[in-house]
């Protein structure tokens, strides 16, 4: 035994199948931590459920609002028009945002590089529903539901959809790893030709 005889604890006088038990007291640090954990509970409840502590929903709202604000500040005004959509291609920061949105939501059908899979190839020159860059916005906003393209308007606001439209427009002419065969019979002119003063602004849907 490592203990000296003076600290050797008392063995209780009962036994069970030869097993005996010491009468050691609860370790002090154990008792302290146990009470500390118990006392933490009312404090937590009072602060978060009765008092001023934020709920997870309030925290979420704050975080979402801050993120939206930061993004708006980053993007500046993004009206739904051709020049803004095509302007995305010239801004690496906006392109990165668009790319991230695309890879979160679109690459599952259109492939990460836009080469198409279940959805059409977005890198070639033929389109099913796109006559002008504005149509990217329109298709994203309303979807082509019977053909499997969801409407993204419930999920994203117009500013975000403009960025995404600009990103997808910028994919044209890319060289995807596994391009899907051309679909659709629309062959819009090069995007730059749409940048004329006569191009009207699409009325922004609500």
């Amino acid at each position: 035994m490592p203990e000296s005889s003076t600290v050797e604890p008392q063995v209780l006088d009962h036994e069970c199948d030869g097993i005996r038990e010491y009468d050691n007291a609860l370790p002090g640090w154990w008792t302290f931590l146990f009470w500390a954990c118990i006392l933490f509970s009312p404090l937590y409840i009072v602060y978060y459920h009765i008092g001023v502590g934020p709920s997870i929903y309030l925290e979420l709202d704050d975080e979402m609002a801050a993120a939206a604000e930061a993004q708006l500040a980053q993007l500046g005004p993004m009206p739904v028009d051709v020049s803004t959509i095509l302007g995305v291609a010239a801004d690496p920061k906006k392109l990165l945002i668009g790319r991230s949105m695309f890879r979160t939501n679109c690459s599952v059908c259109h492939a990460a590089d836009g080469g198409g899979n279940a959805g059409p190839n977005l890198c070639d020159d033929t389109y099913i529903n796109i006559r002008s860059p504005l149509d990217f916005f329109r298709v994203m906003h309303d979807g082509v539901v019977p053909k499997g393209m969801p409407a993204w308007s419930p999920r994203y606001n117009n500013t975000q959809l403009v960025v995404l439209a600009g990103y997808v427009a910028s994919l044209r002419g890319g060289t995807p790893a596994a391009p899907k065969a051309a679909q659709g019979d629309l062959k819009p002119a090069a995007w730059s030709t749409f940048l004329t003063p006569s191009t009207s602004t699409l009325e922004a849907p609500k």
């Binding site: 063995v11 209780l12 199948d17 030869g18 097993i19 005996r20 038990e21 010491y22 009468d23 050691n24 007291a25 609860l26 370790p27 154990w30």
Partner: peptide
């Protein structure tokens, strides 16, 4: 609580803690 004190041939550390 059965097999450990049996194998160790030592009394259980603390009845109160149990």
């Amino acid at each position: 609580y059965y097999f450990l004190p049996k194998a160790a041939e030592r009394p259980v550390f603390s009845y109160r803690l149990s």
